[in-house]
């Protein structure tokens, strides 16, 4: 994505290096932010906040512990979640005992969907469901990591994921019915 030399120049805050890094990474960062945030103003804030934090802590990046891409992805996800929380847009429901049984969603039907269709599906999904779904299914965080990131319990994380999967399944069935029956 970017060279070690560019990273070192970023540490010294060389303006051209910051620009190079931004231009190289911004499309990827933006793709992450788009999944979590649907408001343009918030997206801009999230982009700026994410890159400010990337540049601020770039000297702590250790290539031995992972790729630069996954490192900036983690920062971006954290900043997006943090922004949603600070703006009161991330509302999680209290878990209900027994309501978090693992529900499968129809992966085949989702994999047949286009990116636009998936984005539309995610946009319709309640914010709390979407965040957990993205963190678990898309980013691959486990419930312990999600509970730390969102400052919730693992039970809540499981419950939210279960609800989000149920929501997707119901939504897909509804869409299929609409398509089938008109």
């Amino acid at each position: 994505m970017i060279s070690v030399e560019t990273i070192n120049r970023c540490i010294t805050r060389e303006r051209t290096a910051l620009r190079e890094t931004y231009e190289a990474c911004a499309p990827y960062v933006y793709s992450i932010i788009k999944s979590y945030i649907y408001d343009e103003h918030l997206r801009k804030d999230a982009m700026q906040e994410s890159f400010a934090n990337i540049f601020h802590s770039i000297e702590r990046f250790d290539p031995n512990r992972g790729s630069f891409k996954s490192w900036i992805a983690k920062i971006t996800v954290n900043q997006s979640i943090s922004l949603l929380r600070s703006r009161g847009k991330l509302k999680l429901f209290v878990p209900i005992e027994g309501a978090h049984e693992e529900l499968g969603y129809n992966e085949e039907s989702i994999e047949e969907m286009s990116r636009e269709e998936i984005e539309n599906l995610l946009q319709e999904m309640p914010t709390g469901y979407r965040a957990i779904f993205l963190l678990n299914i898309i980013e691959g965080y486990n419930h312990t990591e999600i509970s730390d990131m969102l400052n919730i319990t693992k039970e809540t994380s499981r419950s939210q994921l279960s609800r989000s999967l149920r929501w997707i399944r119901n939504n897909l069935v509804q869409k299929a019915n609409t398509y089938f029956y008109g």
Binding site: R19, P27, K44, M47, I110, E111, R115, I118, L161
Partner: peptide, 27 residues
């Protein structure tokens, strides 16, 4: 629940930035 690589790749496809996110506008 396992990570879905297909969805990950699909959603992480890079695309052109909107103008308001160009470097000059956010620097």
């Amino acid at each position: 629940m396992a990570k879905n690589d297909h969805l990950n790749k699909l959603l992480r496809q890079e695309e052109d930035l909107p103008d308001y996110l160009k470097w000059n506008n956010v620097e």
